[in-house]
Design a protein around this nucleic acid. Sequence first.
DNA 1: TGCGACTTGGC
DNA 2: CCAAGTCGC
Length: 466
Amino acid sequence: MPALLWLRRDLRVADHPALLAARDAADGELAVCFVVDPVLWEGGGPVRRAWLAASVRAVADKLGGRLVLRAGDPAEVVPALVSELGATSVHVTRETTPTGAQRDRRVRRLLEEGGGGGAGAPAGGASVEWVETGTPYAVGPGLVRNGSGDPYQVFTPFSRAWREHGWPEPAATPRSLDLVELPAEARAEKLLDEALADDDLPTMPDAGEDAALRRWRHFLDDGLSDYASARDRPDLDGTSRLSAYLKVGAVHPRSLLADLAGRRGKGAETYATELAWREFYADVLHHHPRSAWRDLRDGLAGLRYEEPEDAVEAWRTGRTGYPVVDAGMRQLLAVGWMHNRLRMITASFLTKDLHVWWPVGARHFLDHLVDGDLASNNHGWQWVAGTGTDAAPYFRVFNPVTQGEKFDPDGDYVRRWVPELAHLPGKAAHQPWNHPDGYAHGYPQRIVDHAEERREALARYEAARR
DNA sequence: TGCGACTTGGC
DNA sequence: CCAAGTCGC
């Protein structure tokens, strides 16, 4: 019986349970499709669009060019494909984000009613089976519960229970796939081409699961042993840089955890904990879909915010006059990625030094990050802003100079991304105001006084808590 | 229910 | 040394 596998956040062939389920159901008549959905396509910025396009192209190659690419509303496109193929089942990896899950409910209902079908579908079609296999996570969101059966609100107990819950071994990689070929749709191909042709795109890594696995092997050999300490150093290449691949499902976290299982040491454990953060935030979003763009806790509902347009623009473009903040923001624009330490520093600066509401920053990050993930990004922002789970205590305000000197001790990171400071030696790059030539090459003056804004932020928090 | 524990800091 | 609320058991 013909079957259709609809790819979304699972753009790979290895360790893909839904692919295996679809193959087994199809009995030789399997088609694999990707739908360029205008809601997702236009909802994200050009960077995410380009990374997704590159990742789709990569999985198409991996499938021997037999990926069926279509454009349009999935509620029309998927039933139409089902008719074209005569499929009796549609297979997916379960989507767990609010919009993705809602879209899937809609498509599923249409298929099960048999009333879907785009143009040319036979009237009164038969019911089509909707099969969800696996999720983009080692443990599906919603499965980790505390002793009372409730979801966790705090990371550490979650991570313990998450490890205890465990996960299956990676799924087998299919030896060969005999896929049904359907006519390509020029409009969808054109959308991918356009997304990749943008002149203003940052430098992106190679897309696809082969590139992801190469990077992972390299990290296992070269990075893992120092990971626990190096991961916090933006001047070193201490992280795995896998986040963008995880985002599109070019690699499944279960595969990574399986490789870590055989390795002793702090690095392997710390890396697993970072994956646990990703799973925790997906779990939180699963239970609190509204927390994507609203305060998870309403304790700071009375906090007073500013909308300083010029200052926010200076933040976005990396011209705040605080070297480490500007380096982070420029790295984001240049390569579509920012070191995690910088995500915290720049987020703290926007929320506590400029007193701007966190969604303004979360939006900017999502628009420019190749790894932009709603759950991790927005809950991370809420952690900094003090409205999330496990929120940072409100009195914890990052000092951009202290942070810079601590985590970029030689100033290398700053000089790499802020050429106007490239002439300053060592950690002098963190304080151009203390160097006679500090502003010799056009670096902007500080737009605010950190000590003053810190006091202001604390006063505002104090007032809001009453 | 009481109590230990809590990613990432600043001064 | 400051600062503090709340989660989880």
